[in-house]
């Protein structure tokens, strides 16, 4: 049932090792939350999964199996298409909403106008923006922060990924928008595998099926969310959850 298997992963920037010998499996069509104090390496772990880490100058050793096949044996572009990513602050392209959503499909060879229109419409419906937007030619940068982030999630979905990685997607948003996104992620988890890095413990508790706690680049505890939050095995996990590390 695991779509991603991470075996003995280590990641370093230059001489600095950020992830140390980490192994974990990610379950298909579930939401997995990665928690831990700032600087523990959780974002690094996330960007390793779609090899984006290489754009930022990090290097990987160990093994990541995507559908039981080593991720490095895929074309980098294919891995990124199948494992989508949404960043901390919304990153809409400074074009129209329509162009944001057709940017990637066009690259992958979809030229037919009708087909593109269908993708735009379906995606907007999927992320709940369809009723909020009147004009598809409006600049995406003019949307509200929450709408921008949903658009970015939608943009990641336009290439039909199987996994969606989210790096603290709500940290720049207010409560109402956060709620919107959380609800969206729960809906999406029927169809997609979701891995979310979050600072917000109650968010992890609310939406995730599994939770991994990382400290100083090491995986301390990984279990169902319920167990991690109610009955952690490791003392450090307990301390973190009770707010000691802040």
């Amino acid at each position: 049932m695991s779509i991603l298997k991470i075996n003995n992963l280590s990641v370093s920037y230059g001489n600095k090792q950020v992830i140390k010998d980490l192994s974990m499996n990610i379950a298909r069509n579930k939401i997995t939350a990665i928690i831990g104090p700032s600087g523990c390496g959780k974002s690094t772990l996330l960007t390793s999964l779609n090899l984006m880490i290489e754009e930022n100058g990090g290097s990987i050793s160990g093994e990541i199996l995507f559908k039981d096949k080593a991720s490095i044996s895929y074309e980098k572009a294919d891995i990124r298409r199948m494992i989508g990513m949404v960043f901390q602050t919304p990153t809409p392209f400074p074009f129209s909403i329509y162009k944001n959503l057709t940017y990637a499909p066009k690259y992958y060879g979809i030229k037919d106008k009708k087909e593109l229109n269908r993708i735009v419409e379906d995606t907007l419906k999927e992320v709940g923006l369809y009723d909020e937007i009147d004009d598809l030619n409006m600049l995406a940068t003019k949307l509200s922060g929450g709408q921008q982030q949903r658009l970015c999630i939608g943009r990641a979905l336009t290439v039909e990924p199987e996994i969606l990685l989210l790096d603290e997607p709500c940290s720049a948003l207010d409560i109402r928008n956060t709620e919107n996104i959380e609800k969206l992620l729960l809906d999406l988890s029927d169809e997609y595998t979701i891995v979310i890095v979050t600072h917000n413990l109650s968010q992890a508790k609310r939406i995730s099926d599994y939770t991994a706690f990382i400290l100083d680049g090491e995986l301390i505890e990984y279990d169902t969310t319920d167990k991690v939050f109610t009955n952690p095995k490791d003392n450090r996990t307990r301390e973190y959850i009770e707010g000691i590390y802040g």
Binding site: K76, R80, T91, A104, R155, V159
Partner: peptide, 13 residues
């Protein structure tokens, strides 16, 4: 840079 990265993250060249 994050805008450029989100394009690379879509698998785009």
């Amino acid at each position: 840079k994050s805008i450029i990265n989100s394009s690379y993250a879509l698998g785009i060249s």
